[in-house]
């Protein structure tokens, strides 16, 4: 049972969270100018690192998406921060 730090609510049980995506993906646009390969890279390809990783998570109970740095092997959580800067 992992504890994840929601930047808005503090440490909470992992069952309250949902994994969204790896951090740092920018949606390629406009659609008409995006090659199939580029769209595939955005939509499907992943680094999926073994070890430290930076991800976007959703705290389902408060509805906020946020960034979290953690380790996919040890499960240690290095920290988290709100997506759009400081929580408001």
């Amino acid at each position: 049972m992992q504890l994840f730090p929601c930047p808005f609510c503090g440490p909470r049980d992992e069952t309250e969270f949902q994994f969204a995506t790896e951090a740092g993906k920018t949606r390629p646009e406009p659609a008409a100018e995006v090659s199939a390969e580029r769209w595939t890279k955005y939509l499907y390809l992943k680094d999926n690192p073994k070890g430290p990783t930076r991800e976007v998570w959703l705290h389902v109970t408060c509805g906020e998406f946020f960034l979290m740095e953690r380790d996919t092997v040890s499960h240690a959580v290095a920290g988290s921060q709100a997506l759009g800067g400081d929580p408001r």
């Binding site: 049972m1 992992e14 949902q18 994994f19 073994k50 996919t72």
Partner: peptide
Amino acid sequence: DRVPSYAQRGNPP
């Protein structure tokens, strides 16, 4: 499990 992982171990939830 709900959390992406390479841990190869079980988790209670």
